[in-house]
Amino acid sequence: MNNLYEKKIYAVFGNPISHSKSPEIHNFFYKLYNLNQKYIKIHLSKKNFLKNISFFFKRGGKGANITLPFKEKVFSLCHEITNRAKIAGSINTLKLFENETILGDNTDGIGFLSDLLLKKIVKRKFNILIIGAGGAARGIIYPLLKFGCNIFITNRTFNKAKILSKEFQNFGNIESITLKNLNQMKFNIIVNATSAGIFNNIPLIPENIIRKETICYDMFYKEKNTNFMKFCKNFGSNKVFNGIGMLVNQAAHSFFLWNNIFPNVKKTIKFLTKKKIKKNNKSLKY
Rank of each mutant, 00 (worst) to 15 (best):
N34C: 10
E223D: 15
F158P: 08
K166W: 00
L117N: 08
N106G: 14
F235R: 11
M219C: 08
I131Q: 01
F29C: 04
P69H: 01
R84P: 07
K7V: 05
N83S: 05
N36I: 00
I209N: 07
K278H: 09
R211A: 14
E223M: 02
K41Q: 13
V248I: 04
K230S: 02
K46R: 14
N92D: 06
T154M: 01
K119I: 03
N192W: 00
F56A: 10
N227G: 02
N159L: 04
Y39A: 07
Y30R: 08
N83Y: 02
S283H: 09
N192S: 07
N200D: 14
I177V: 14
L94A: 13
F55K: 10
I140D: 06
S165P: 11
E24C: 02
E98C: 08
K274R: 12
S176Y: 08
N280K: 15
E72P: 13
S283G: 02
G111P: 14
L257S: 15
S54A: 09
F271H: 15
L164R: 04
I163M: 09
Q169H: 14
C232M: 01
Q250R: 06
G111Y: 04
I269S: 05
R211V: 00
I91Q: 10
K275G: 07
I131L: 15
H253K: 09
N234P: 00
F97L: 15
E167A: 14
A196M: 01
V240G: 13
I87Y: 09
A136N: 07
I153E: 07
I110S: 14
Q250E: 10
S254Q: 02
K239L: 14
Q184E: 12
A136G: 13
I261E: 09
S195V: 00
K125W: 00
H79Q: 13
R84E: 10
T157M: 01
K123F: 02
N192L: 03
H26D: 00
N264Y: 03
K160Y: 11
V248S: 06
G243Y: 03
T226A: 01
C216N: 11
S283A: 13
L116N: 10
I205M: 06
E24V: 02
N99Q: 05
V240F: 10
G111T: 03
E72N: 08
K166F: 09
L35H: 12
K162H: 02
Y142V: 07
Y5Q: 07
I140N: 12
F171V: 05
S18W: 03
I141V: 10
L44P: 13
I130R: 03
F55I: 04
G139W: 04
K180Y: 00
K180Q: 06
T67E: 05
K62I: 04
L117D: 00
V248R: 05
Y10G: 15
N52R: 11
A252Y: 09
F241N: 08
F112Q: 08
I42E: 04
N264H: 03
K239M: 06
I66D: 15
N15Q: 09
K160V: 01
I91Y: 13
I190Y: 04
F55C: 14
T93H: 10
W258T: 10
G132N: 03
T178E: 14
N242F: 05
A88D: 12
R211H: 15
